[in-house]
Design a protein around this nucleic acid. Structure first.
Lengths: 210, 210
DNA sequence: CTGCATCCGCTTCGATACTG
DNA sequence: CAGTATCGAAGCGGATGCAG
């Protein structure tokens, strides 16, 4: 039986449902579409198999994720967020914005997950992206922002194209700064408007990524 | 040493700082002003002394709470949120809104903390309260909403006065419904406007307060 | 190969007792 | 009042086993 705070309080109740270790990270992974058990295992480095199974069971009991059997010959089950689970988006966004305040730039050895650029743009810009079309290349990731809509991949005829690395993206989105070290082609002023909406004020704390 | 997810991700980083058991509830308590160690102990039923001490140490190391020695003859230390800690407000608000979706009305034996009415109004209404002046009495709690500003206690010459209980407040704020069982004096339509801003869509899930 | 369950060593939690 | 010390129980992380 899962431990409960047994407080009559919506925050404590929310933490009863998603406050255990790994729970919110499972939700984070499922936000971008259904995944199989093994996909979750490899996208959540450090989680052990029994804990992941337990979390999925608890999240299912709580009505946050659903288990569905794939059609046809796939023969494998997938986990996906329910509507209630999708409702956690504001929680994850708030945590991400707050976490970014004390998260430093990516260390050189950071393993970035597939799709990180699109996720970062979506989290940092939300619905506040300025007009214009932007195409960003960082490492082997490509993402675009076209009149506030964020998508993976290139876009036809962008106002500005940037070729950079993850650290440059970090300073753009978290500090609102356009650093040197990137190739910028096109409308630099549009890029400055994009930098201007960075919603995070950084702080210095002792904590770092382990 | 605290356990870390060691993911380069702002959400995982945030959870490294405040994701452990009790951490966010400590922050919730300190949001309304500095508290002493023993105050925290009694406002967080179920937490044990060693765990509270450990959490306060970790939160202090993370730059989320500060320890201050009271002036004069008080001779006792208080804990308070830093600016970074205050920055967790959107996280707590998002969690509270989400938690309210599956939190049922208060059971008769629920022990409500002092100030619950003001907190509930602040969480549910945020900055979206309609114009008008409201005075709410529930049990022995009194709070007012005057042109969107929420405060404890009565207010002079309110448009509407309600005398009710916690369950009635719950349905008002969470379901947006004005139930029977309350004494309503004054402008009932103003009250309906207040109910209209209830931001939570409830769902039915198995989970309940233990 | 996928989707877990089981076992094991370790850490953390919760309750209580105790100290400056 | 403000914690530390101790101890049993539960949870976590890692490795392995095993059925479909």
């Amino acid at each position: 039986m899962a431990r409960s705070y047994s407080h009559y309080c919506p925050i404590a109740h929310a933490l009863d449902l998603v406050g255990e270790r790994w729970s919110l990270l499972v939700v984070r992974e499922l936000k971008h579409g259904p995944l199989r058990y093994t996909d979750l295992l490899e996208q959540l480095p450090g989680v052990s198999t029994n804990v992941l199974a337990a979390r999925l069971r608890e999240l299912e009991r709580g009505g946050i994720v659903g288990r569905r059997r794939m059609p046809a010959p796939a023969a494998s089950a997938v986990y996906e967020l329910t509507d209630l689970g999708q409702g956690l988006t504001p929680v994850l966004t708030a945590l991400a914005h707050w976490g970014a305040r004390s998260l430093g730039p990516p260390p050189p050895d950071a393993e970035l997950v597939r799709g990180w650029l699109e996720r970062a743009l979506r989290t940092a810009l939300g619905e506040t992206a300025p007009p214009g079309s932007f195409e960003l290349h960082a490492g082997d990731e490509i993402a675009s922002v076209v009149d506030g809509v964020i998508k993976a991949g290139a876009t036809p005829d962008p106002d500005v194209v940037v070729r950079c690395d993850a650290t440059w993206i970090f300073h753009l989105l978290v500090d609102g700064e356009i650093c040197s070290g990137a190739e910028i082609e096109g409308d630099r002023e549009a890029l400055e408007r994009l930098a201007g909406v960075a919603p995070v004020r950084r702080v210095e704390v002792a904590a770092t990524i382990g």
